[in-house]
Design a protein around this nucleic acid. Structure first.
Lengths: 233, 233
DNA sequence: CTAACCTAGATTGTATAAAATCGATTGGCC
DNA sequence: GGCCAATCGATTTTATACAATCTAGGTTAG
């Protein structure tokens, strides 16, 4: 991605104030995996990158710290947060609780417009060959399903959860699972929504997310198997 | 209010770095209701209060913004966040999802030590006459129940939820509901946990939280009734 | 040849100070 | 007397500069 923003002679960036712009850009870069976990974020460099002083950068980093995207080491600055596999699995467990709840509330409130929008997203998903973009379609589909529940805070929490989990699951899931099976489940899920089958839809959604957990767990075992022989004692 | 903290000649405060200390103190003051919603937090005042410059204050405020405790108005600084009653009810709905999940996981993992700790808290709760401190006991009891689930991120989310909701429900619930009924439910909940009655415990917990929602809704109706006549047209 | 120490460089954390912005008050005008 | 406009004041926002801390490389003693 183009590293340098426009010089931006005076505030009034596309997002408003300077720290907000830095925060949005960094969050996007971290969520997408462009900035690897453990990477240290040097303030001078970011300040130069965005054409501001270090103070807006520091404020943006503090916000991202509160959101869990970066970690401040004492007197060593900020690094991109790293999560253990166990933590990611826990976040997926939380996702199950939040999204099943959202879906339960959303289904009775869905209209034909919502179902049609979701269908279009699935068709676009089908037509996308680049695995790097599957994550975005997956998010858009799920977000469209939950939106009718009309719970702003809940939807915000779900979105934050995606931002945290995505960068660890994206690569793994696309190559381990492919898109055939998730898509089949997506279409079934949509059918259940159309028919008002709340219980079946929720159960399918839970299984759908648990599948990701299983993929992670087997990847973990595989990693242990690969690394084990290298460290005998 | 004691205006000045100790001069604190050089860093090394009790919490570590300067922004952390400011953040903790402000969060506690906001959660406890000491700082009312809508109050604007002037940076130089806080800087003087904590004996630092305004930069650590700004960083602390930005973290609190990300946590949802303060809101930045463009070029007007930070104010203590205000939540509508609908938002608080939504947060309580989320609380139901998170805590029922935590409880379900915690009950099978509970030992005698956990049950005894919870019992002691309830007894101390019984002996406490000051309604201002009931909230703390309530939190300690629930936290003790959920702790055995061994899910750090989930517990952190539950705690954050308490921090947000508490300041709006504390006063209302203590005077509307008293502590007799909640305590009765607490003891029953504890019994269900001891007996491993997961389903019954979860249902009771849900009802317990929904009771708070109902109290809020009736308070809302009451407020509308009181304010209505004043604004005929 | 190894290991510990010490110096140099770089990076973060904080304070001070200037620039931009917004709200309020006061003066003028209709 | 009421309303609009411009200036004043206060506050946030950002930039510059300094002090403290940590990492890395080289040097010297063992």
């Amino acid at each position: 991605m183009e590293p340098a923003a426009a010089p931006s002679p005076r505030g009034a960036g596309p997002h408003g104030s300077a720290p907000d712009a830095v925060r949005e850009a960094l969050r996007a870069a971290i969520s997408s995996g462009e900035l690897a976990p453990g990477l240290q974020l040097r303030q001078d460099e970011l300040a130069a990158r965005f054409g501001t002083s270090r103070i807006p950068v520091r404020e943006a980093l503090r916000q991202l710290e509160a959101e869990g995207f970066v970690t401040f080491l004492p007197n060593r600055g900020a690094v991109v947060s790293d999560l253990s596999i166990d933590e990611v699995i826990e976040l997926l467990e939380i996702r199950i609780a939040l999204e099943c709840h959202a879906l339960r509330l959303a289904i009775p409130a869905m209209g034909e417009v919502d179902l049609e929008a979701a269908t279009k997203i699935l068709h676009a998903y089908d037509a996308e060959p680049d695995p790097a973009r599957w994550g975005a379609f997956n998010w858009k589909f799920h977000a469209t399903l939950y939106a009718p529940c009309n719970r702003p805070r809940l939807l915000a929490m779900i979105q934050a959860n995606y931002g945290h989990v995505g960068r660890f699951t994206r690569a793994l899931v696309s190559q381990a699972t492919g898109k055939e099976r998730p898509q089949r489940e997506h279409y079934r899920l949509l059918e259940f929504c159309r028919d008002g089958e709340v219980k079946k839809a929720v159960r399918l959604l839970r299984d759908h997310i648990e599948e990701t957990q299983k993929t992670l767990r087997s990847a973990q075992r595989q990693a242990l198997r690969d690394a084990g022989p290298e460290r005998p004692a």
